[in-house]
Design a protein around this nucleic acid. Sequence first.
DNA 1: ACCTGAACACCGTTCAAGT
DNA 2: ACCTGAACACCGTTCAAGT
Lengths: 202, 202
Amino acid sequence: MARRNEHSRDELREMALAAAETLLDQQGSEALSTRKIATAIGYSAGSLYQVFKNYDDLCWQLNQRTLAMLLAALDTDAAQTLNPGAALQRYGQQYLAFATQWPQRWSLLFEHSTPLDLDTPDELEQAITQLFGKIEQPLSQLFTDRSAEQISEAARTLWAGVHGIAVLRAHNKLFQVQGGADAMASTLLERYILGWQQEISA
Amino acid sequence: MARRNEHSRDELREMALAAAETLLDQQGSEALSTRKIATAIGYSAGSLYQVFKNYDDLCWQLNQRTLAMLLAALDTDAAQTLNPGAALQRYGQQYLAFATQWPQRWSLLFEHSTPLDLDTPDELEQAITQLFGKIEQPLSQLFTDRSAEQISEAARTLWAGVHGIAVLRAHNKLFQVQGGADAMASTLLERYILGWQQEISA
DNA sequence: ACCTGAACACCGTTCAAGT
DNA sequence: ACCTGAACACCGTTCAAGT
């Protein structure tokens, strides 16, 4: 049957991704399925394969959108008006706030691992580089006489640290204190920076 | 058919968990299934429900075993012969090494989230408390005049930080430098401690 | 060209029926 | 009491057939 052509390929793709995001937010990644997405937009499951290579590809496209949202949530303009230390603190809080606001999208972004592949979408890599760049900027203001490699390693370390706090909070059961994540991220950043300055002066 | 009774309940349970671990190590959590486990031990899938409440329960029991292994991998006896800073460094390296050696079991432990449940196995909570205790011990040697709450928060923060590094390395694509994780964990611990000492003396 | 519905090979889970 | 095999309600994916 059928030859509806009511929607262009791009429209279909957009509808599918939007429906997937709603399902993801409401029911979690475990409950997400091609059949549910198709039903939600009034198409058959087979139609999705016009627009997505497979389910894995669909997840990557979701993750790309999530990463774009995350980058937008890290407000670089406002950070640049602050002193470097405060800018880092602000990024950390914004990162934790994002993970709180979009727990399911954020989980999919970091837990969906493509099995043994060559690809790793190029646009995703670029977005991650952009994310690190944001953190490197205030760091290089604070540590002017450190090499780019050292700044880069510190940015990755601090981001991993805040990420770890967000991960453990997202999976609950690891902190009894409820509002502790913000304070933990704050002291992590503060003490790391203080400690690094100490190293330099030594 | 059948009334074999060749194995006791405990034997069946042990066989199933061992087979599940092998499948998990070889094919990852995505490919793990009750049907494959049952086939591997020569039983029907239905038999597993004698011994496990459901698939989720099976995963929890796997995770409990993984957590016991992890605790054993953090060698407390040896750490106590070291100075506190070195002991923390050693725990960090052992944690990263464990995540490298058992990537699939370690992933399941931290990514398997039980959906909206009341339970959270008690034994798991206890094991986590034990894990934090190991980190608190050297920390309280280094910071004798800090409260138990402050030591506890620092232990959780440092562990979350090292965990974040392990998570991002496990999912690749976030670090170009390959051997960087060990160095990152090392500087994270060192600078945090140095920074905290700075705070105190201020 | 676009879309569907049936088909295939998988899931977790239950339960009547067999020993 | 223990265990199975069929059944049920789901999956992702493909593809002949329809418009």
